[in-house]
C-alpha cells in the first residue's frame, strides 16, 4: 500500500531541499488532555522517522486533522498553524510554530534539542501487550512521568520529550495538567516525504511569546468580565495564563 502525504501550506514556505530517503516510519495517535486555565481535550499525532519528527495536536472537531481515505493518509496544514512541533535530531532543533493574536500572524520558536536527563525506573506495566517502563524527567519547568516501551524504537516523543530508547505511550506531569495517552500505533507506515520545513515567520523566544499571550489574555479577561449581568459585582485582577512550557530550560 503506497501512502502519500500532501502538505498544503496556506502561506508560502520554502521546502527544505534536503530530502531524506524513504524510510520506515512510526505514527502514534494520542488523546491529549491539557488543563491549564480550563480543560481542553485534543487529539495529537506524532509521526517520526529516523531523523525528524512531526508532532501536532488539534481540536478533534476541527478540519485540520488526519484523514484516511482509500488507503491514503492525507493531512493538511491549513491556516491553523498553531500547536505544531517539528524536531530534527541531526540539526538538533525543535521548531514550534505558534499563532499570534492578529489574524494570519505566526511566529516560530526554535530551541535546541537535547538528549538528556531521563531517569529510567524499574517500574513497569503492560500496555496492550507491550512492556513499558516508567521514566521521569524535569523539562521546561515541569516534572514529567512517562511510560515508554523499548520494544518499539522511537527516539522522538510528544511535546519535545525526546531521547528515550523506546516509544512513549503515556505522559503525565506532576501537576496533573498534562495527560497524553496513546490510542493507536502504526509501525512501518510508509511515507514518501517527511520534511523539516523552512519557514519565513519571525523568530521569537518562548518567554517573549508567553508575555505576549499574557497581555492578550488580560485583554480578553477584561472583555469577558464586562459581559455580565448588572446584579453582579466585578473585581479584576491580572490573570497569568499558564502554558505547557514554564521555563526556558
Amino acid at each position: 500500500m503506497k501512502i502519500k502525504i500532501l502538505l498544503f501550506f496556506a502561506t508560502s514556505f520554502l521546502i527544505n531541499t534536503q530530502i531524506y530517503s524513504q524510510s520506515n516510519n512510526l505514527v502514534v495517535e494520542y488523546d491529549f488532555r491539557l488543563i491549564l486555565n480550563n480543560i481542553k481535550n485534543y487529539s495529537a499525532i506524532l509521526i517520526q522517522n529516523d531523523s525528524v519528527s512531526y508532532f501536532k495536536y488539534f481540536n478533534t472537531e476541527s478540519n485540520d486533522h488526519l484523514k484516511e481515505k482509500n488507503g491514503n493518509y492525507n493531512f493538511s496544514i491549513g491556516s491553523k498553524m498553531e500547536n505544531f512541533i517539528f524536531s530534527d535530531k541531526f540539526q538538533k532543533l525543535n521548531l514550534e510554530i505558534v499563532k499570534g493574536f492578529e489574524p494570519k500572524k505566526y511566529y516560530q520558536i526554535v530551541d535546541s534539542l537535547k538528549n538528556s536527563d531521563w531517569e529510567i525506573t524499574e517500574e513497569s506495566k503492560m500496555i496492550e501487550g507491550y512492556k513499558t517502563l516508567k521514566a521521569l524527567k524535569k523539562f521546561k519547568g515541569r516534572e514529567y512521568l512517562v511510560w515508554f516501551t523499548p520494544d518499539i524504537p522511537g527516539y522522538f516523543g510528544p511535546l519535545k520529550l525526546h531521547g528515550l530508547p523506546g516509544l512513549i505511550l503515556e505522559v503525565s506531569d506532576s501537576k496533573k495538567e498534562i495527560i497524553l495517552i496513546a490510542k493507536k500505533i502504526l509501525i512501518n507506515k510508509h511515507f514518501e516525504k517527511l520534511q523539516f520545513p523552512k519557514v519565513n515567520y519571525p523568530q521569537i523566544r518562548r518567554m517573549e511569546y508567553n508575555q505576549m499571550v499574557n497581555k492578550e489574555l488580560e485583554k480578553l479577561t477584561q472583555k469577558m468580565s464586562s459581559k455580565l449581568d448588572r446584579r453582579f459585582k466585578v473585581e479584576i485582577e491580572s490573570s497569568s495564563p499558564k502554558s505547557i512550557e514554564i521555563e526556558d530550560q
Binding site: E128, A182, K183, K184, I185, L186, I187, N188, H190
Partner: peptide, 8 residues
C-alpha cells in the same frame, strides 16, 4: 516491511 497497526 509490513504495516502493523496496534489499537490501544
Amino acid at each position: 516491511t509490513e504495516l502493523k497497526e496496534v489499537i490501544i
